[in-house]
Design a binder for these strands. Structure first.
Lengths: 224, 224
DNA sequence: TGCGATTTGTCCGTATGTATT
DNA sequence: TAATACATACGGACAAATCGC
């Protein structure tokens, strides 16, 4: 057993699995514009696969919420309204507060090192400024820390379902504003509190952190 | 436009949609035993459909968590460990507390009547004692009230994803114990607090209610 | 109001890859 | 190792529903 095997998520062996990843990437990066209609035959053709596994992959993305399927009418890239975004953030706040409560007693020196490393990677990604989508991914990876540490598989699964929607909105927002993503020091307090001994302060900060995140990114959406 | 159209959830027009419901029912009622292996060709044959839409329906049930798919190995009905159940209950507690917070200010006299009606239906279903699975469905329908009232679509969706897993476990538990489901007056306090003016008391009660539910139903599972 | 074009939904036959015996 | 069973995937076909003219 190669000890590196645990690091790479074990490349999908099925076309369906790879297609899910491929489509997810195309949507969250904005290469497939929000609201755009997708036709199966075109997609299958472009991806070089047949309609069977493609339709299965589509089902998964519809479940996550990145695609919207209306029977016999068509398949569309999701659009995000202001209310959608508020729902995403409020649910996310609940989940992350819960994750910290579950993870709090499980914090080890190694885990905290891991957290700092993720922040360092985020900062590095911001400073490098090569891939404009890098910081987004790095920030979400930073936030994944508490969910992973909690050991709560159902909670982690919920987060993983929510994550692509956030990623999708961030990329959309960034394109529209032609602006850099997260600021370099935006998570300093987050890290400090997560490493400290005051769970209540951490939970309070999460409310602030999330509200702030919502307010700074909610600008340009049509009210629904 | 018929004004009744909004009442019935509009029977699924696609085989996939109907198959999802059919399979969900077969699983949560225990007609497909936990851990049982399913072969696609048999299933397609038994349901009288082809493998295409069946495989798509399977994807949805795998996402919900009722089925487990191991690539190239097979498809199985999920099994529930003690840890799974604890996770389901702890997440559910979070979601329902959040739902009540969101729904609290939206309670109208009509909404509270609706809640009481759901409880009455639950009691009636228990006393009728015809379909042993009726009370389970009625109880879940009662608990759905706060999610629907909250107007939080993403939250409702999360609940709807969690619900089949609870339903599945309840039916399994009931079969194993040959016992009736919920007691007649189990939700009296729940209803009274939900109709009252002390949100804090309601939230506290949810913790109790859920912990109690977990403890009374956790008996017979293998520790994992 | 129909009619035709397009697309989704569905089915079937077949081939290939994987796991298990 | 060979053989079997089954999941996965492909391609072609047709039916059903929608939309534009």
């Amino acid at each position: 057993m190669n000890h590196l095997a645990a690091l790479k998520p074990l490349e999908d062996t099925t076309i369906r699995g790879r297609t899910v990843e491929q489509l997810r990437r195309l949507v969250v990066t904005g290469e497939l514009a929000a609201g755009m209609r997708l036709t199966e035959t075109e997609l299958a053709d472009a991806l070089g696969i047949s309609r069977g596994p493609l339709r299965e992959a589509i089902r998964e993305l519809v479940d996550i919420g990145l695609l919207v399927s209306k029977p016999y009418k068509g398949l569309f890239v999701r659009e995000i309204t202001r209310k959608d975004l508020e729902e995403i953030y409020s649910l996310r706040t609940m989940l992350e507060r819960f994750a910290f409560q579950e993870a709090w007693e499980k914090r080890t020196p190694e885990a905290l090192e891991d957290l700092k490393a993720r922040n360092k990677k985020l900062i590095g990604s911001i400073e490098a400024a090569t891939d404009p989508l890098g910081p987004i991914e790095a920030e979400l990876h930073l936030h994944s820390w508490c969910y992973e540490l909690s050991g709560h598989r159902l909670l982690l699964q919920s987060w993983n379902r929510l994550k692509p929607n956030l990623q999708f909105y961030f990329a959309m927002h960034q394109q529209a504003h032609e602006r850099k993503g997260p600021k370099r020091r935006s998570h300093d307090l987050y890290i400090r509190l997560a490493s400290g001994n005051d769970l209540g302060a951490m939970l309070d900060h999460l409310n602030d952190h999330m509200r702030q995140g919502l307010e700074t990114t909610i600008g340009f959406i049509d009210c629904a």
